[in-house]
Design a protein around this nucleic acid. Structure first.
Length: 476
RNA sequence: GGCCCCAUCGUCUAGGGGUUAGGACACAAGCUUUUCAAGCUUGCGACCGGGGUUCGAAUCCCCGUGGGGCUACCA
């Protein structure tokens, strides 16, 4: 059975990189008919918050990444909040201590810090010197009894090498002697990441650990832990990082990093899913992937080794693509609240028509608001250049007046009845169609850009068209 | 500093001994057209450097260089 997990720490919103890791795990599970587990790694008591838990759930939910086991979804391997597994972790630490594979350390952070600095000055690797390893039974007992702050360190095998056989990178060899006796239980009694994740992954029967590249260097430590327990390590797959425009690891200064903020900005979840899937994974030349395609086509073989730069332009393009493809009803649902917020309540049928007029003009959902303003506001200024070009012409008044009179006669007021009015007028005046339409567009919208003329006229309706033409006639 | 990973257009990538090095975004031009978009066509544009191996390297190996990561009582 394939079992994978996404194990975020709740110290902030679900960011792009985390979402992509979650996605790859989820896709692998769905593709393989396996299970996707969500485990919250909240052992950092200082930084973990409940709001962050919520934010992670929201992010995953927006992308449609559902978990088979985890918070709110009971499973046989819970609990799924790491802090609720404290006893389990402490028992396992104790087991290692009893077996002589781990030991108590009473060195203070200050002391260690000082040693690290000294080592750095001597240009030596800042490794723990193993001072407390040499403590006698009696010394340990005395310190333990005195209630002195303590941590537990893993006793590293001194020799040999540890091989990480990575599904994406192949075999990576690490020399054990370069590692040191790392801490597995902190002085607050909570396990460290490297320890807790090993115990939990094993107990939860995780078969594949798919995670960011930044964990590759941690993997030998974890493998050593598996070996110390006599457990079989899972398969590992380290996926490349996501970088910002300057090729540095993506962070706040690269703009919005939390996935949910993309929802607020007006991105569609399918666009986001498609985009982040392509960040570090590919399937030939294909660009467009719906959720089902991704599930069908995803494989670890398709995952790249090199890091990818987050490119907003491409995301925007994808978003536009998906907006053009979505059902009218859904687009209306997405736009409606924004329009109501900006322009107040309007007839639903009217809103629908307006939204559909901009269907293939939107890159982001909120673009609808500025683009459609003249559908909701009767008072607007005329574009300055437009006035020079289309109002300050000898014919302008005549055109607008004629248009007003003739449109008043149109019944029903639909675009196929409206169209002939424009064509006939242009012909009679010996003008090109554009010469009639441009002043009219300026009169009706105040701008030089709009949906096609006849749609525009129909949607605005006879009354507004007349009013606006009158106003423009006076102005010109 | 030590260790580890990575390296094809500006960006995402295809290709993995012999290719006119292909596609997508962005950019530019054109077409279409009542404008803006959309759509279509075309253009611009890359194998990090140096050594090997080979008849032949973008491709395999080594060394540099560059970028990233780890080296925490963060995950």
């Amino acid at each position: 059975m394939i079992r994978v997990r996404f194990a975020p720490s709740p110290t902030g919103a679900l960011h792009i990189g985390g979402a992509r890791t979650a996605l790859f795990n989820w896709l692998y599970a769905r593709n393989q008919g396996g299970q996707f587990i969500l485990r919250i790694e909240d052992t950092d008591r200082e930084r973990s918050t409940v709001e962050a838990n919520r934010a992670i759930f929201d992010g995953l939910e927006w992308l449609g990444l559902d978990w088979d086991e985890g918070p709110n979804v009971d499973g046989p391997f819970g609990p799924y909040f790491q802090t609720e597994r404290l006893k389990i972790h402490q028992d396992h630490v104790e087991q290692l201590v009893k077996e002589g594979k781990a030991y108590y350390c009473f060195c203070t952070p200050d002391e260690l810090d000082k040693k690290r600095k000294e080592a750095a000055e001597r240009k030596e690797a800042p490794r723990y010197d193993g001072k407390c390893r040499k403590l006698s039974e009696a010394e340990i007992k005395a310190r333990l009894d005195s209630g002195m702050p303590k941590v537990v360190r893993f006793m590293l095998p001194p020799m040999g090498e540890t091989i990480v056989d990575d599904k994406i990178r192949g075999k990576v060899v690490f020399q054990n002697e370069l590692l040191d006796d790392f801490v597995i239980l902190k002085s607050d009694g909570f396990p460290t990441y490297n320890f807790a994740c090993v115990v939990d992954d094993h107990l939860m029967e995780i078969s594949h650990v798919i995670r960011g590249d930044d964990h590759l260097s941690n993997t030998p430590r974890q493998i050593l832990l598996y070996l110390a327990f006599g457990w079989k390590p899972p398969k590992f797959a380290h996926i490349p990082m996501i970088l910002g425009k300057d090729k540095a690891r993506m962070s706040k200064r690269h703009g919005a990093t939390s996935v949910i903020s993309y929802k607020d900005m007006g991105y569609l979840p399918e666009a986001m899913l498609n985009y982040i899937a392509k960040l570090g994974w590919g399937f030939g030349d294909e660009e467009l992937f719906l959720r089902e395609d991704l599930i069908k086509k995803f494989s670890l073989k398709g995952v790249k080794k090199s890091p990818a730069v987050f490119d907003m332009d491409k995301l925007n393009w994808l978003n536009g693509k998906y907006i053009r493809q979505i059902l009218p009803e859904r687009l209306v649902d997405l736009c409606e609240p924004l329009l109501i917020e900006a322009y107040g309540n309007h007839d639903v049928e009217y809103l629908k028509k307006v939204v559909m007029a901009f269907h293939d003009r939107l890159v982001l959902i909120p673009d609808i608001v500025p683009l459609s303003s003249y559908f909701f506001k009767d008072e607007f200024d005329y574009d300055k250049k437009g006035v020079e070009k289309h109002f300050k012409t000898p014919n302008a008044k005549k055109i607008l007046t004629a248009l007003k009179e003739r449109l008043a006669e149109v019944e029903p007021f639909t675009k196929d009845k409206i169209e002939p009015v424009f064509k006939a007028l242009a012909e009679e005046l010996g003008l090109k169609l554009g010469q009639v339409i441009h002043p009219c567009r300026l009169a009706l919208t105040g701008t030089l850009e709009s949906p096609p003329m006849y749609d525009l006229v129909e949607i605005l309706g006879k009354k507004k068209v007349e009013e606006r033409l009158s106003r423009a006639i006076k102005f010109s």
